[in-house]
Amino acid sequence: MLETILAMTVGTCRVELHLPGNNSLKGKRRVIKGLKDRIRGRFNVSVAEVDRLDEWQRATLGIVCVSNNSRLVDETLTKVVNLIETHPDALMLDYEIDLMAH
């Protein structure tokens, strides 16, 4: 019996955002929901708000991409970061991309 060895790459991206024009949690949720929907609609990734949930003008997003192609994972997460950078209501403060091969 032959065993197939599957190569899998899991890429994670943590993005720190500042929402300068925001003055309520309701406004923050509107901006973040729109951004998450846009990311999900354009890329085959999972995205969630993972930190700073009760701060009006700050947000941390976690994005995950899984594939058997590490180059594809890196390129996809880089494109997600580029998309976030163009959002008019969110200023990216920092981001970090990590790839893990399994």
Score class of each variant (00 low, 15 high):
residue 84 I to L: 03
residue 72 L to K: 09
residue 39 I to E: 06
residue 24 S to T: 07
residue 91 L to D: 14
residue 28 K to L: 10
residue 88 P to G: 02
residue 91 L to R: 12
residue 28 K to N: 09
residue 87 H to P: 00
residue 27 G to M: 05
residue 74 D to R: 15
residue 67 S to N: 11
residue 34 G to I: 04
residue 82 N to M: 08
residue 4 T to A: 12
residue 91 L to N: 14
residue 16 E to Y: 00
residue 79 K to V: 03
residue 39 I to S: 07
residue 71 R to Q: 12
residue 31 V to Q: 01
residue 51 D to N: 08
residue 1 M to Y: 04
residue 18 H to G: 05
residue 102 H to S: 13
residue 27 G to S: 05
residue 94 D to Q: 06
residue 26 K to Q: 06
residue 60 T to F: 11
residue 28 K to T: 10
residue 6 L to W: 12
residue 18 H to A: 13
residue 98 D to H: 14
residue 60 T to L: 15
residue 66 V to I: 05
residue 19 L to M: 07
residue 66 V to P: 03
residue 36 K to T: 13
residue 39 I to N: 02
residue 1 M to W: 05
residue 75 E to Y: 03
residue 79 K to A: 15
residue 54 D to W: 00
residue 9 T to P: 05
residue 29 R to E: 04
residue 11 G to P: 09
residue 46 S to D: 10
residue 47 V to D: 06
residue 75 E to V: 00
residue 9 T to A: 04
residue 56 W to H: 09
residue 16 E to K: 01
residue 27 G to C: 02
residue 89 D to A: 10
residue 18 H to M: 01
residue 8 M to F: 04
residue 20 P to F: 14
residue 98 D to C: 13
residue 57 Q to M: 08
residue 63 I to M: 03
residue 67 S to W: 04
residue 65 C to M: 10
residue 73 V to L: 08
residue 54 D to K: 04
residue 38 R to H: 14
residue 14 R to E: 02
residue 13 C to S: 09
residue 76 T to I: 04
residue 69 N to W: 02
residue 49 E to R: 05
residue 74 D to V: 10
residue 77 L to S: 06
